[in-house]
Design a protein around this nucleic acid. Sequence first.
DNA 1: CTCTTTTATTAAACAATGTTCAATTAATAA
DNA 2: TTATTAATTGAACATTGTTTAATAAAAGAG
Lengths: 200, 200
Amino acid sequence: MGRRSDHSRDEIRDMAVSAAAKIVEKVGYQSLTARKVASEIGYTVGTLYHVFHNFDDLIMHVNAQTIDEMAALIQRHIRKKRNPEVRIRTMAEYYVQYATDHPDRWRLVFEHEPPRSLATPARLKERRDVMFEMVADNLRELSPESVSHEVEHTATALWSGIHGICILALTGKLYLGGAFSMVKLIDTLIDSVINEFRRV
Amino acid sequence: MGRRSDHSRDEIRDMAVSAAAKIVEKVGYQSLTARKVASEIGYTVGTLYHVFHNFDDLIMHVNAQTIDEMAALIQRHIRKKRNPEVRIRTMAEYYVQYATDHPDRWRLVFEHEPPRSLATPARLKERRDVMFEMVADNLRELSPESVSHEVEHTATALWSGIHGICILALTGKLYLGGAFSMVKLIDTLIDSVINEFRRV
DNA sequence: CTCTTTTATTAAACAATGTTCAATTAATAA
DNA sequence: TTATTAATTGAACATTGTTTAATAAAAGAG
């Protein structure tokens, strides 16, 4: 068969990304294949390669969608909060929430290695940076006299640390197999970093 | 050809693990294949399957070796230190050192997902836990009156945080693309957690 | 020393993967 | 109506992990 034009290229791209996300959630990101995505949207692999540069390209689109979803969830919840410290804690709370609810999609964001031939698109990097910037903004509000570079440094350390707890827990590589609560571990980190930040 | 017996099964297993580790370091863990390992040691894939249960089984052996190497490096350096706080800082220093020097082998430890059919061997888990326990031991020495569970909780939070900084930096997913020094970020985390730990 | 049994090793085959491409067919333009 | 353009397919490709029947050498029995 030849041209069908049931859907535009953009529609097919969106359908493929959504189908891929659904497959990742259902059977895990290890079992995501081009043929599964294609058959899920009623097309053939060839069509996917007409719309995406690569399979990695498709994955990066899935990851962009994941980050957007996660950021939206977080922003929806911190909008109600006025206290910068509470906002940071809320960010972490829903970061963990999202990662726990969608473990495979979340892991795909951090465990997918784009081939060196294909550079990570600037949009994806920017999206990832959004979370760091939100933490920095609230730290700045917490102590307006701090120099910007120090604030960003602290925000990077704190958010990376939270991420570390999250990924070790979700991959089952945490000490004692996750006998500790992720939320409490993260609270400890936030308490420590914020107290130290206030003191300096 | 049939039986050669140039090497015992144990020898072949060790050769394969070393060859695999070398390949991972040279061309990256994404490019590690069973056939490359086999040809590197002068055998065929079939022989690998005579010695390993799986390709994942081979990888877990590689990871065990990696963790042992890393733990040995760290222990060699903290033996000279007497102060528990200095020991924790030294641990982090050489953790980063090892990860930076052998990025692909280090990442393989944390990004290899064993299939749910094949359970992670207890030995591998124990090896991973060694690092957490070393941190806990030194925290305990730092404040002997603390209850054991609190100490382990703090150690888990701190070491997971350090790991988070490390993995985001090494995978190029850190805020501002690693414009911050890994060592300084980790120092910030250690300062914060240890100060807070002392206070409680 | 000879015959049998065991077992290490290979080569070939398998199914599944990402990827490419010529053929086909429908929409669009002339 | 015809010619051009482009979407879609199906089949092919190389490469992956994995299995297996054939083979040859070591080990054991007599």
